[in-house]
Amino acid sequence: MTAREVILARLRAALDTAAPLPVEVPRDYRRDGPADLDRLVDRLTDYRAHVHQVAEAEVADTIAGIVPAAASIVVPPGLPPAWLPPTVTVLPDDDLDNARIAAADAVVTAAAVAIADTGTVVLDGSSDQGRRVLSLLPDLHICVVHTAQVVATVPAALARLTPRRPLTWISGPSATSDIELTRVEGVHGPRTLHVILLP
């Protein structure tokens, strides 16, 4: 018998000795609700993300205000070029190696979905968000979200996402509470998160 056969036989035998009744899962929990932008901003801010609510034409200026002049910024291939201020050094991801990504000052990405209830943005690897490593190694992550991408709840977000894409759910900067339950923002992931919220 292979280990696979052994395990499946054991599990079937376990269930045979006392067969469980079929289960009906109650799904009367909240699926969706109004996508409340104020709540999203409140919850992002509560978890130490910086939020900027601006018009799309102001994205480049907003980013220029966040990063130092002449900052090097990693950029996924599909990011709208108009979002980038002219003062920065753009590092487009044409298979950048990890050391170069890690050495960059910041990364700018779009997002797939944002969740108001939890203050979460989700990246799904689309061309304006790029490979997972891009938003991981730089110390500063700037994420641009459209209002139309904001949903109220976790179930509403899952309904919009494609499971087979690599997904990264981000709620504030990286953090740890491992020392005396004191929350420290910034461990291995980006230590600073800015969310630019477009109409």
Partner: peptide
């Protein structure tokens, strides 16, 4: 859709956060 439930239950019950800073999903 079962993640509807567990991604709400787990962070609030465990670290006491609305959502943990990072969740990674891969297929």
């Amino acid at each position: 859709r079962d993640l509807d439930v567990f991604l709400q239950l787990l962070p609030r019950a465990s670290t006491g956060e609305r959502m943990n800073p990072y969740t990674s999903m891969w297929t």
